[in-house]
């Protein structure tokens, strides 16, 4: 069975590493990106099955990423947004742009896994 490919865009290296470990342990193939530029490059090469992105990232924010994926790449790949608590405006904007789900910081890795599974199941 093919492992699902996830793109994790998170500028906090520690959190990214932790989530990466957890997601890989759950059987996903994860590629990490610490900033928007890297994300753009990776998306240009290959479209993952799901994107997990922090809303606040250097060079290329999460909102821009959603816009890029939906409008330029014309992809319907599910996108889960990670946002800080009390950042409702950005979350609403993300949903407007086409985000599928969001999870707020502090992140519960177990919860993230459930959301990823759900989104992937929806997309199948």
């Amino acid at each position: 069975m093919d492992r699902k490919r996830l793109l994790l865009a998170e500028d906090d290296e520690l959190l990214a590493s932790l989530l990466n470990y957890r997601l890989e342990k759950s059987g996903y193939q994860v590629s990490l990106s610490n900033n928007g530029k890297e994300v753009k490059d990776q998306l240009g090469k290959e479209m993952p099955d799901l994107i997990i992105s922090d809303i606040m990232m250097p060079y290329f924010s999460g909102l821009e990423l959603i816009d890029y994926v939906r409008n330029e790449l014309k992809s319907k790949t599910p996108i889960i947004i990670i946002s800080s608590a009390g950042n409702e405006e950005n979350v609403l904007s993300a949903f407007d742009l086409g985000a599928n789900d969001f999870i707020s910081k502090p992140v519960s890795p177990a919860e993230l896994i459930v959301r990823v599974e759900r989104e992937l199941a929806k997309n199948q």
Partner: peptide, 12 residues
């Protein structure tokens, strides 16, 4: 200490 701020639940 850094991770404690970013994670919740059982992980924390």
């Amino acid at each position: 200490l850094d991770l404690r701020k970013d994670v919740s639940g059982e992980t924390q």
